[in-house]
Computed example of a mutant assay.
Amino acid sequence: MNAAYTVIAGKGATNYAIGLSGARIVEAVLRDEGAVLPVSSVLEGYHGISGVALSVPSVVDASGVRRVIEVPLADEERERLRTSAGAIRASLEALGID
């Protein structure tokens, strides 16, 4: 829960990781790399989840997310992922976005 504060205490800031991550994604797109990166995209049928954007391992190239990699999950992990997707979906509905 306090991980960000631990990082800030040790490094002085957390914004560098965000900048590096964004730069890495742009690099993969511009170089048409086909790199596997944990990026968000709207999922369709990912472990039974559709219509919600979540960060999952994906192949990123000049077209953006070329494909999502469906990693094996234990039943408990799959249920927790679906619970997270449900929370996001409920927030979108509450905001009138669907």
Rank of each mutant, 00 (worst) to 15 (best):
G48D: 13
I49D: 00
R67M: 05
N2V: 09
V26Q: 13
L30G: 14
E44N: 12
A35T: 04
V29M: 13
T14R: 15
A23H: 05
S40V: 03
G96P: 03
Y46I: 03
L54E: 01
V7R: 05
A35M: 06
D32Q: 09
G51Q: 06
V60F: 01
R80F: 05
V26L: 11
A87Q: 15
G64W: 03
N2K: 15
L37A: 02
Y5D: 14
A74E: 14
V56S: 01
A9C: 10
D61S: 10
A28E: 01
S55V: 06
S41H: 06
A35K: 02
R80I: 08
E70P: 01
A28T: 00
N15V: 12
Y5C: 11
A4M: 10
D98Y: 15
R78K: 14
L73H: 08
G64D: 11
A13Y: 11
I97G: 06
R24Y: 01
I97Q: 07
V7L: 13
A74M: 11
S58D: 03
S21L: 10
A4R: 04
I49L: 02
V36M: 09
E44I: 01
E33V: 07
I25W: 01
L54P: 03
A28W: 01
N2L: 14
A35V: 06
G51V: 08
G45M: 05
V7D: 06
V36G: 02
A9G: 06
A90S: 14
R89D: 09
V39F: 00
N15S: 14
L81E: 08
E79G: 05
A17F: 08
I8H: 11
A87H: 12
L37E: 04
Y46M: 01
I69E: 07
G22K: 05
L43F: 00
Y5S: 14
R31V: 13
P38Y: 09
V7A: 12
R66V: 06
P38A: 05
S55C: 07
G22Q: 08
T6H: 13
R89H: 13
L73T: 04
A85R: 01
A87E: 11
V68G: 01
T83C: 14
S41W: 05
G45C: 07
G86R: 06
S55Q: 05
V68S: 02
L54Y: 02
A9Y: 10
N15A: 12
A28D: 02
V29K: 10
V60I: 13
D98R: 15
I97H: 14
L37S: 01
R66K: 11
L95A: 13
R82G: 02
G12A: 10
I88V: 11
I8N: 08
A62L: 14
E33A: 15
S63T: 15
A62Y: 14
V65P: 03
L92C: 14
A23R: 09
P57Y: 04
